[in-house]
Nucleic acid binder design. Structure first.
Lengths: 172, 172
DNA sequence: TATTGTTATACTCTATAACTATA
DNA sequence: TATAGTTATAGAGTATAACAATA
């Protein structure tokens, strides 16, 4: 098993795999490659690229698909709840819902209990689109993870979730 | 060793740790939590929050610090090279350099070989700022990684780099 | 009083086309 | 012709304040 060297950067864990971008111009990237935020940025960028190119056909951006999936799994939720779960501001989610509504993918029905809020749901067309999206999503996810074995993939999710829950609960 | 359950989501690796955001409103997040892009988004968001609050004192955003670090490690580089290494467009990097210059942190000296391009460098004030920043950065990185042992941290970087280099070289 | 959805708005980030000066 | 830096610009993404309706 090659390609797994010892850490060299200022912080432990920065295997100097020589990132593509850095290798390109032959720049020394140690300082950045040992910082999680920068490494996440780069990884996210390439994943995003694959996502966007795959979902171009369905005219769905990541956050839109995220909303549709959340609404599907949580029918009857309020806009505030979905927005919070997506990590976006309520005002910005309104605009998004306007468009999903306009495209006939979602429904806002006024709640019976609390007439201030909506009960969100997918229309049949929304369901149909999500079903097509799930196929694409599986392909995307498989492609993105193709260099990881199942165990490595599990490790990756576990480590990311550990960081996230640590910083969220802990505050600072 | 608790808190490490078996995968339940549609894709392997999605340990249902019940993310903070999802747990908040009690939403079912399986569909999103098993997608790397969404998990990366959330993790990056909390890390970014910590970064921004720490570097507020130095008035440095992540990308600005990234530029300063790259220039320091690669003095004499051209703007195009640094921009490419940062993963941002050349026009946008110009604006950034304008501000770093204005703040007296960087220098653009016209190259001798090729009079179209600049040789970038840090001013003494830039060096001083970066030195202070490195201290903060170490604290940030330690805090962010505090829930990971050195080996888990190494795994995390290795897995992220594997994905990135896989998608970059492979194309699609 | 507090909350839901909304409007307006502003600021950052990102991407592209087109110019200039050099090569 | 091609490249480095630049300008202008447009589109996303993100954040906040303030309002109406409802609780």
């Amino acid at each position: 098993m090659m390609n797994r060297s010892e850490p060299k950067g200022p912080f432990p864990g920065s295997e100097q795999t020589e990132t593509e971008a850095s290798a390109a111009a032959g720049l020394n990237n140690e300082a950045l490659d040992s910082i999680l935020l920068f490494t996440l940025r780069k990884t996210q960028a390439v994943i995003m690229q694959d996502f966007v190119s795959r979902f171009d056909a369905l005219d769905l951006r990541p956050i839109q698909l995220g909303a549709l999936l959340l609404i599907r799994s949580n029918p009857g939720s309020r806009q505030s709840d979905i927005a919070a779960a997506l990590g976006i501001q309520r005002p910005n989610f309104v605009t998004m819902m306007d468009e999903l509504d306009r495209r006939g993918l979602t429904q806002r029905t006024t709640s019976n209990n609390d007439r201030r809020s909506y009960s969100l749901g997918l229309t049949p067309q929304g369901e149909a689109l999500v079903n097509r999206a799930l196929q694409l999503l599986a392909e995307h996810e498989a492609f993105v993870s193709s260099r990881l074995d199942p165990n490595e993939r599990r490790q990756l999710f576990a480590n990311l979730n550990r960081i996230e829950s640590g910083l969220t609960s802990g505050g600072r």
